Computed example of a mutant assay.
Amino acid sequence: MRYLFLLIFAFQSHAQISDFDTIDFTKADRIALECKNERLNNLPELSYKLTSKLTTDVERFRAIFTWVCGNIANDYVYYTKNMRKRQRYKNDSLKLQNWNSQFRKATLKKLIKNNKTICTGYAYLIKKLSDLANIDCEIVHGFARTSTVDVEKLDAPNHSWNAVKLNGKWYLCDPTWASGIPNPSTSIFEFQYNDGFFLSNPKLFAINHFPVDKKWLLLDDFDKTSFKAFIEAPIIYGKAYANLNNHFEPQKMHNTILKNEKVTFKFELLKPVVVKDVKLLIDSGYNSKKINPNSTTIKNQLLTVEYKFKHTGFYDVHFFIKGDLISTYTFKVKS
Rank of each mutant, 00 (worst) to 15 (best):
I17P: 06
I126Q: 02
V305K: 00
Q251F: 11
T304E: 13
F198L: 01
R30V: 12
Y48M: 12
W161D: 02
K105S: 12
M83V: 13
V317Q: 05
G180S: 12
F319W: 04
Y3T: 14
C137V: 14
C137N: 10
D19G: 00
K169D: 10
R84K: 14
K228R: 12
T26L: 13
T56P: 06
Q87G: 10
L129V: 00
P202D: 00
K105H: 13
A178H: 08
R104T: 13
K165L: 05
P211W: 06
N255A: 03
N71W: 02
T297F: 03
K224P: 05
S288R: 04
E138T: 11
T297L: 06
D19S: 04
F205Q: 06
E261V: 07
S335G: 11
C69Q: 05
D24E: 07
S179P: 01
T176V: 09
T80M: 07
K90G: 06
D174V: 05
K27I: 09
A106C: 11
S101F: 15
N245I: 11
G238T: 04
E249Q: 10
K49R: 11
F20A: 06
F103S: 14
N194I: 12
V140H: 07
D213C: 07
S187M: 15
Y124E: 02
I31L: 10
Y48A: 12
K299D: 11
N300D: 15
S335T: 07
